[in-house]
């Protein structure tokens, strides 16, 4: 995408944010998956790595040995096509053996192109069809609230996903019920499948939309690990309303050629040279 043509009305935080060793290592794991699968949602995954990394490293309560532990925080990746980011973190945390990663989309693997909660330990809800996770999360949070449970519910939404009317049905309902134990995190990478969010279906004024639906909103650089940590640690934002974290991210973050490039939304038929190129670009990323 021609950076000069980027519209000014949206927040481009995240573009210059450097990646540390762990962020690069998790992206390396994704590239390793590509060596066997030769396909996957590259751009949609790389915008999401820091969000999921910080949640699982510092915020969510869980027990990888007991994925169904009732006291766990519930995490739903509503933008299921970003599942590679979740898979590499779940494998890293020991929810399932790492060798499953090499069987991504394989007939005998548990890891599909969209996450299936019946197959993958640690996956709370099967997603892939956009616009479902917000309501499921709202239902879980409502149950938690009415049973005075301590666990929290975090739902990660894509920006393109927020074109779905069902997301806003869920937002209205979450606002009505005052679900302060529920957090929607939007991976606002400004690109959807066909083009920029600005071109396809403008979301702005995005934060105002969420506020007007009864949510407490904070915005953050979605690649700034410290900033994400501080934002998530501030949950719940006001104790009366559902929380929304708008994470300003970069689609394809970590591989300059892929950044804001809709051609990298999903890649298939990747060859060794391409993957080697991605690896080299990631290695030398600032």
């Amino acid at each position: 995408m021609d950076l000069q043509r980027r519209p000014n009305a949206v927040d481009w935080r995240g573009l210059a944010t450097p990646l540390d060793t762990r962020s690069k290592a998790l992206r390396e794991d994704v590239l390793e998956i590509f060596e066997s699968s030769r396909r996957g949602h590259l751009g949609s995954t790389f915008s999401l790595i820091e969000i999921i990394r910080v949640l699982y490293d510092d915020i969510l309560r869980y027990d990888a040995a007991r994925p169904d532990w009732s006291g766990r925080d519930r995490f739903i990746l509503s933008k299921g096509h970003g599942c590679l980011a979740l898979y590499v973190v779940l494998a890293d945390k020991g929810f399932f053996p790492r060798d499953e990663l090499a069987k991504f989309c394989a007939p005998d693997g548990i890891l599909g192109g969209h996450p299936d909660h019946k197959k993958v330990p640690g996956v709370e809800a099967s997603t892939g069809s956009l616009g479902h996770g917000a309501s499921i999360g709202a239902g879980m949070a409502l149950h938690g609230m009415r049973t005075n449970s301590k666990h929290r519910v975090v739902v990660v939404l894509g920006d393109g996903e927020c074109n779905e009317g069902s997301v806003w049905e869920a937002a209205m309902s979450a606002g009505k019920h005052g679900l302060s134990n529920l957090t929607f995190v939007v991976d606002y990478n400004k690109c959807q499948s066909y083009g920029t969010t600005r071109e396809v279906q403008d979301l702005e004024p995005f934060a105002d939309k969420w506020r007007s639906f009864g949510c407490a909103v904070q915005e953050v650089d979605g690649h700034d690990v410290r900033g994400l940590r501080a934002t998530f640690n501030a949950l719940p934002f006001d104790g009366r309303r559902p929380n929304v974290v708008i994470a300003h991210t970069v689609k394809g973050k970590g591989i300059p050629e892929a950044e804001f490039n809709t051609a990298y939304h999903h890649k298939s038929g990747m060859n060794d040279d391409e993957i080697a190129g991605y690896r080299a670009a990631l290695g030398s990323y600032r």
Partner: peptide, 22 residues
């Protein structure tokens, strides 16, 4: 719970509640 005129949300929330044991 009487939700709004939002059947998609109704069914999704029902699923979320049921996942928790309802």
């Amino acid at each position: 719970y009487m939700e709004g005129i939002s059947e998609m949300n109704l069914v999704g929330m029902a699923a979320g509640l049921a996942m928790e044991g309802a």
